[in-house]
Design a protein around this nucleic acid. Sequence first.
DNA 1: TTGAAAGCGCTAACAC
DNA 2: GTGTTAGCGCTTTCAA
Lengths: 350, 350
Amino acid sequence: MQVEPDNVEGTAAVMAQSRGPTLAEVARIAGVSLMTASRAVNNRPGVSDEKREEILGIADAIGYVANRAAQKLSGGRTHVIGVIAQLHTPFTSDLVLGIGSAARAVGHEMLVYSLPDEGRRPPDSVVDLLHQVADGVIVILPYASDYLTNLSRSHIPIVTIEAGETAEFPTVAADNYHGAAQAIRHLHDLGHRRIGFITGNERLASARDRHRAFVDLRHQLGLDADDDLVAMGDFTQRGGFVAAERLMALASRPTAIFAANDAQALGAMTAIRQAGLSVPQDISLIGFDDILLAAQMHPPLTTIRQPLAQMARAAIKLLLTLVAKGEPPATPITLPTQLIVRETTAPPRA
Amino acid sequence: MQVEPDNVEGTAAVMAQSRGPTLAEVARIAGVSLMTASRAVNNRPGVSDEKREEILGIADAIGYVANRAAQKLSGGRTHVIGVIAQLHTPFTSDLVLGIGSAARAVGHEMLVYSLPDEGRRPPDSVVDLLHQVADGVIVILPYASDYLTNLSRSHIPIVTIEAGETAEFPTVAADNYHGAAQAIRHLHDLGHRRIGFITGNERLASARDRHRAFVDLRHQLGLDADDDLVAMGDFTQRGGFVAAERLMALASRPTAIFAANDAQALGAMTAIRQAGLSVPQDISLIGFDDILLAAQMHPPLTTIRQPLAQMARAAIKLLLTLVAKGEPPATPITLPTQLIVRETTAPPRA
DNA sequence: TTGAAAGCGCTAACAC
DNA sequence: GTGTTAGCGCTTTCAA
């Protein structure tokens, strides 16, 4: 059952190229030059309205579909945007969907390259691959990987979502610091004074910002500040599980836990239950992201919502501007978060 | 905050084309012709071993990356395969990841087009778009959409996973009939005699096969056969919720429910709980697919596993063969399923 | 085993 | 407003 590509290709024979109608045909039928047809089809100036309409009609009639490979090759715009993301991660894949909608809303299509699992090194040329068909690329930084360094070589229009170690590219992100602050304040308002924190993958700025907010707020609000209350996570569900286990094993357990993202909150939920406790009666739990799943858990998860749709739109806008003007990266765009209170947080036991 | 693409493009100015090294450069440095370089790089016969190695070395040294758009345009192979799928659906997105791995395992890359939500009509030209860069396309049929009809026009190498209404393309699928039979047998073995069924979206062959198995087995095993016990679903979580609500409202409730997929089982779980019952004490629940989430639910879901990795490999193999030989579609490939017993099934209450 | 010529479908640049 | 020319980077012929 092993596929042997070389073998298969060795037999290459028929190669159904099946090319459809081309611009040349449209032009021929319309009795105009290639360029006039091109201008009409691409909605550009330089064609009389009547001719334009006629050409468009013909194109539609014979089912003309622009060949993006050819457009790209000749230096044109394809109206395709590429996205590089790790589809395994819930927040990331939700975000990809949002980018797709945002792209379509402005007349572009989206093509996605799914980064392989961690550990397997992503091919260096992925950005090139996407750029060979897309006008620009949006990179949703993976939870782990020094991927950005590879990217910085290429001079391709790139926008990142969630900055990593370095910030060499135009970036869109949620206000992670204030979002995390919202979470802590919510727990504090409910009466919690002993709050545990599960960190994210601190190679990402988002994780570091959330951590920083936790430390700052804990101090500002005068909460218990044992080092034990901070457990290292990595943004994965498994990481959240392990970290929460450690928190549960503490002599003096926290009455609430803030997980740096929803995936970890999910893992924490399992650990809490395995310790024979229940949420929110024994332990309150709050996450970050508001992934689709958060509302569907039992009980539904209280969390900090990242403005996914807004982030997607902002990233697209940034990218399109970059593609068009080749402008230097503006300052990072930061979007506000929102506290979503569901059923995993409650006042602490008396 | 609205993006106006035309506006943006109007300002087009710099357009950083940033092209990297080309084959021509490799050839020039190596002191050979373009064709020799091409043959060497593509691992094809017609080049002496020493020349080949030298050329490969140079290509590597100057960071040559093949331009797939150009390859495609001139009728060559790009070693990219395209996937069209609805990323919203858990099983589908799991499968996409599997296809990615399978593709990489045989030296190909995968590019994904995510079909927009139902209701919004997918652009007809998506297959063309993908085919303009990929050698062939794998279509994971969406839970709803007469998408296939649009596809049949194009003469592009296409393999589908999960057949829909028609079966015009080479297809890979799990053995839905026997998988569903496994589910019913499992419940029967536990002692259940009154089993509810939540159908899938019956526009897909997979849903119809599972339904057929339910009806057949129910008869063979002499189970209760009220019409009420079959509730229509659509493969979505919401659909499962609504269908289960109906089953819960029955005067004579089933003691077990078979949901045609895991997403619906998730929805059913919520409905069962809202009816004040618990799984599996009051009602046993079994799903189909074994999505990643199934094992992470509380309690973990008993289900029928589709052989995802195998399906992915088979689809890739089929596609590559099709691309190379242009052979007529072989008979559909059917892969066996597996019963995964977790914690949502138990003997009925005495 | 190697190379030269032609062209894939399109657009930028420059005519008119 | 319209057309012509050239060429993107590669691979297919076909010839040596």
